[in-house]
Design a protein around this nucleic acid. Sequence first.
DNA 1: GTTAGCATGTAAGGAGTTACATGATTTT
DNA 2: AAAATCATGTAACTCCTTACATGCTAAC
Lengths: 217, 217
Amino acid sequence: MRSRSDVLELAILGLLHEAPMHGYELRKRLNLMLGSFRALSYGSLYPCLKAMAQRGLIVAADASQTPPPHALAGKRSRNVYELTADGKEHFSQTLASSGPTTWEDEHFDVRFAFFAQTDAETRLRILEGRRTRLAERLEHVRQSAARTRDRLDEYTLELQRHGLEQVEREVRWLDGLIDNERGARRATERGDRRAQNPEPGRPAGTEPADDADASQH
Amino acid sequence: MRSRSDVLELAILGLLHEAPMHGYELRKRLNLMLGSFRALSYGSLYPCLKAMAQRGLIVAADASQTPPPHALAGKRSRNVYELTADGKEHFSQTLASSGPTTWEDEHFDVRFAFFAQTDAETRLRILEGRRTRLAERLEHVRQSAARTRDRLDEYTLELQRHGLEQVEREVRWLDGLIDNERGARRATERGDRRAQNPEPGRPAGTEPADDADASQH
DNA sequence: GTTAGCATGTAAGGAGTTACATGATTTT
DNA sequence: AAAATCATGTAACTCCTTACATGCTAAC
């Protein structure tokens, strides 16, 4: 019963799968990957790397191997990590899983970020799971909102409305993605070569002209 | 240097300010209030109540005072809490503050939930602070996205695009609210009696017919 | 009368942050 | 040579969750 925050671990495995990296850089990529904010601290990252190295998922290759731009002799700083065979194995096994924890808030983003390396069936199962999860929430919130509506002031009401709208939007986003995946799958089953690369693209109903206001910075 | 999660404390103060309550009910209201998910556990709530009672912000009035529906004699369960004078004082002082922590993610929602009891100037300052905060994020993410765009696969790109869009939407929501507050303030300054109650309403550009798709469950 | 839900609490532990301590490299 | 930024790490502490332990009340 592995605790439910192998999230960080999975993210690290995934990034190191693309290319070896040292902690500092890893952190920046990590912060970008997940919606992008909530800067992960070194106090989290380094201990995690250490533990993963001990478990044999990654190894710290001394910087002597790959001399960085401005000649950095094999002194001692810059621990460049890379995946071991075990690490690769663990990564792909995790990517193949699609249990209920997969579509929880924190997990979902990371799993989605590695969809390009996830097989189509798993992708679909995760998207559908997430969609169901959000729809449940929506229903729950709607009902309790209906029960308490008249007792609330306008600001609280507006907050609730806005929260609801955000989740609704999220559900529609998932709907678009699911449609795309289904389309790609049907095309593949029919042997349509052109659909080999799923192209998540923009889900239906999301106009690219959307940031007209925001682009005026 | 009060730790930055008086969030829970503030929320409790606010709810008890409306009406005395026991922990179990408090928890339900609490979970509704903030976007509505991430159920707060008893393991958090009860110790917090205890600590607040010790600090003299709230008192546990024995259930004997308000006998619930089906006659629950003053046995021992149902600790109904209410604010003390100190608690009320602390609450209104906190509501009057508008420091930088105010517009951080977790704080903001709670502060907004109590806007009806916050004076107009503070409301505006918090909204503007939050807006600036989000705009900074947006800028930061946009730039690092632009730097890494070509190296990313389509799913990661879509995730980034979606994240960006969400924040943009949030900014527009705030813009609407700020406009409303400014309008209400100008009206009040001119002595316009009709604008006494700010009516946050729906910010411009947010159609109520929005959940047409979602209501088909 | 037994199951389900209301109600309160505690102990252990997970996950992450802040603050500190250190040193190398690059820029000014 | 000073300042900024890259880079790594540790220790203490915070906040919260899970799991446990307990007992009352309502419904079937």
